[in-house]
Design a protein around this nucleic acid. Structure first.
Lengths: 336, 336
DNA sequence: CTGTTAGCGCATTCAA
DNA sequence: TTGAATGCGCTAACAG
C-alpha cells in the first residue's frame, strides 16, 4: 500500500505538497500539481483515513445504534440514515443493540474509542441513557424516535399523540362508537402518547375509551393475536373497530379475528401504525398511520451534521407529523 | 479526552507500562498494574483505536456491502452479520449499495481508505467485481449468497438448485402435475439455479416444465401479481401449483389469484422462497423454501475471520442447504 | 520488570 | 509557493 511518501518521491516533491494537492489546500503550482496527480494515479494511492483522523481529530464516522435492524421499522430507518449520512460524507458504524443494555453500553464505548464524530440513537433504553450521559459531553449525538426523559437532548421524533388522534378521528368519522386499542408496552412513552392521542380523538367525539378495551401487548404478531383473542373472550361485546400500535400487532389481530369467522372490515375494522410495505399485501390491505421515516432520517442527519460542525442550532427538538393511509381494513360499522 | 500519557503521568509510570496493562502483554508488577488501572478508571480513559489501528496496521473493522437493508432478506443477513462480527470483536461499517454500481465502487474505495480488515459482499454486481478485483489483493473478503463468475473467490452461498428441487418435490408429492414458476431476473445466476432445480425436481417425476409456464419477474410484490395475471390470461389452462422465487412475489401472486376468486390452496397451491417472518401471517400462511440466514452469516464471518488471521483455509466455497417449511398455502390439487 | 524511542501516515505549522 | 519538522496516540523493539 503506497503512502503519501511514495507519491512524493515519485512526483519529486515533498509530502506537504502532496497533502496540499489531495486536500486542495494552499497554493500549488499547476506543474507540480499535475505531477502529483499523475503519481497518485500511477500508484493507485489511497489516503489512509486512520492517519488523517488521528491527525485531524475527526473521522467522518457516525455510529448508529438501533434496537433491531431486522425489524422493518428500523431496517427502514437504518437504510435512510445510511443514505443521508453517506451523502454527507460520513461512513456509518452499525450497532444492533437487540434491546440489550449491556450491548448498548459496550457499543457506545467502542464508538467513543473509534472516535466517531457523532452518534445517532434510535429507541435506546432509558437505563443506557444514564450511562451514556457521561459521554454526551464528548461527542455530538441525536436521539431518534425516542423521548429522553432525563435531559434536554437533540431529538427528532414522531408526533405519536397525533398518530393516535388521526386513527381515532378516522374511525369516528366512519361511524364507529365502540372501539378498542391494542397498545405496545406502556412503559414506553411513545405508546402512552399514541394511546392518549387515540383517547383524545374519541373524547372529542364524545366517546370514552374504557380501560377494559385497552389491551397492552408487545409489538409482535403473536401479541396482537393474543390481544384479539382476549377481546373476543370478554363478555362486554366486541368493539366495531380496533387500533393497534403497530402493523405487526394489527396483522396478528386480523388473523385471530378471521380465524373466528369474522369479516374485516364488515364485522370489525382494524387500523395499524407504521405503514410497513406488507400493509398493501395483506388481505384486506391495512389502513394505518404512516411514519415518515425518510424525513425523520433526513432531519436527524442534518441536525447531527450541524452539531458536529459546531453550528448554532436553534431548533433542537423536532416533531414530525404522521399521516393516515386509508386502505380496505376499515369501513363503517355494520348497521344493526 | 485523556491519552495514554495522562494515565502514565497520573500512575507515575511510563506509557509503555500503561500499554502493557491495557493489552495484557509483557510482565508488569502487580503494584504498578493496580496503580495504572486506578488511573485509567479515575480518568475514564478510553484507548484511541485510530492510533492503535495506525500502529498495528489492523483495525478490527469489517465492511459489509449489501444491496438493500430494507429488504427483509438482507436486513436479516445484516443483523446476523453484525451479531457474529461483533462477537468476534469487529465493528461493522454498513454500506447500502442500492444496486448502484457507482455506489458500490465508491464504498469499496472508502473501505480501503478506512483500512478495514476485511469485507463481506452480499449480492454485489458482476460489473463491480471487476473493479473490485484490483483491491482483492489488498484485503481479505468473503462473498455471500452470490456466485462470482469471474474468479475463484471465498464464498458462502445457498444451494439454490436444491431449493428449487425441494419445492418441486413437495408439489409433486402432493399430486400436482401441472405447474408454473415465477422467477426472479434470469440474468441473476441464483434465479437460474432455482429454476433448474425446480425443473429437475419435476423431471424426476416425469413432468416437463413448459416454457410458457415460466414467468420471469423482478422479486417484487407487484411483479408477482403481474405474473399471476399473465398466468390467468393464458389460454393453456391454469396450473394447479406455482413456485415463486421469493416470498414477496408469492404474496403478490396469491393476492392476484384471490382477487380473481380463486381459493388458495384449493384451486391453486403456492410455494415461496426465503421464509421471511410475514409468511406466517399472511392468509393462508405460505409454504416456502427457507434460507438459513443465521448459518450463512456465521459461516461467512468465520471464514472471513480465518482469512484475516491468515489461517490456512482449505474449504473456501461453502454451500448451505435450504429446507422446506410447509404451511397452508399448499395442498393436493382438486380432484377433477 | 521497566522506560526510552521510533515510527505508523498524515496535516499543519514555520521558515525559507 | 515550497519543504522540513512536529506531533496526533499508540505499540513494539530495544536497552537497561
Amino acid at each position: 500500500m503506497p503512502s503519501i511518501k511514495d507519491v512524493a518521491k515519485l512526483a519529486g516533491v515533498s509530502i506537504a505538497t502532496v497533502s496540499r494537492v489531495i486536500n486542495n489546500s494552499g497554493k500549488v503550482s499547476p506543474e507540480r500539481r499535475s505531477r502529483v496527480i499523475e503519481a497518485i494515479e500511477k500508484l493507485n494511492y489511497q489516503p489512509n483515513l486512520l492517519a488523517r483522523g488521528l491527525r485531524q481529530q475527526k473521522t467522518r464516522l457516525v455510529g448508529c445504534l438501533v434496537p433491531d435492524v431486522e425489524n422493518l421499522v428500523f431496517a427502514r430507518l437504518a437504510k435512510y440514515l445510511e443514505e443521508f449520512l453517506s451523502a454527507h460524507g460520513y461512513s456509518v458504524i452499525l450497532c444492533n443493540t437487540n434491546n440489550d443494555k449491556n450491548k448498548e453500553k459496550n457499543y457506545l464505548s467502542v464508538l467513543i474509542q473509534r472516535k466517531v464524530d457523532g452518534i445517532i440513537f434510535s429507541r435506546v433504553s432509558d437505563e443506557s441513557i444514564l450511562f451514556m450521559s457521561s459521554y454526551f459531553k464528548q461527542v455530538p449525538y441525536v436521539v431518534l424516535d425516542r423521548t429522553l426523559e432525563i435531559e434536554f437532548a437533540p431529538t427528532v421524533k414522531l408526533d405519536n399523540f397525533l398518530g393516535g388522534f388521526l386513527a381515532a378521528q378516522h374511525l369516528v368519522e366512519m361511524g364507529h362508537r365502540h372501539l378498542a386499542c391494542i397498545t405496545g408496552p406502556l412503559k414506553i412513552r411513545l405508546c402512552r402518547e399514541r394511546l392518549e392521542g387515540f383517547r383524545e380523538g374519541l373524547k372529542v367525539a364524545g366517546i370514552d375509551l374504557h380501560s377494559e378495551y385497552i389491551f397492552e401487548s408487545d409489538f409482535k404478531i403473536n401479541g396482537g393475536k393474543e390481544a384479539a383473542l382476549k377481546m373476543l373472550a370478554t363478555g362486554g361485546g366486541l368493539p366495531t373497530a380496533v387500533f393497534a400500535h403497530n402493523d405487526m400487532m394489527a396483522f396478528g389481530a386480523m388473523q385471530a379475528f378471521r380465524d373466528k369467522g369474522l369479516d374485516i372490515p364488515k364485522d370489525i375494522s382494524v387500523v395499524g401504525f407504521d405503514n410497513i410495505p406488507i400493509c398493501e399485501v395483506v388481505s384486506p390491505p391495512l389502513t394505518t398511520v404512516a411514519q415518515p421515516f425518510e424525513e425523520m432520517a433526513r432531519l436527524g442527519v442534518e441536525l447531527l451534521d450541524s452539531l458536529i460542525k459546531g453550528e448554532e442550532v436553534t431548533q433542537k427538538i423536532m416533531l414530525v407529523k404522521p399521516y393516515l393511509v386509508i386502505r380496505a381494513s376499515t369501513a363503517p360499522p355494520r348497521v344493526v
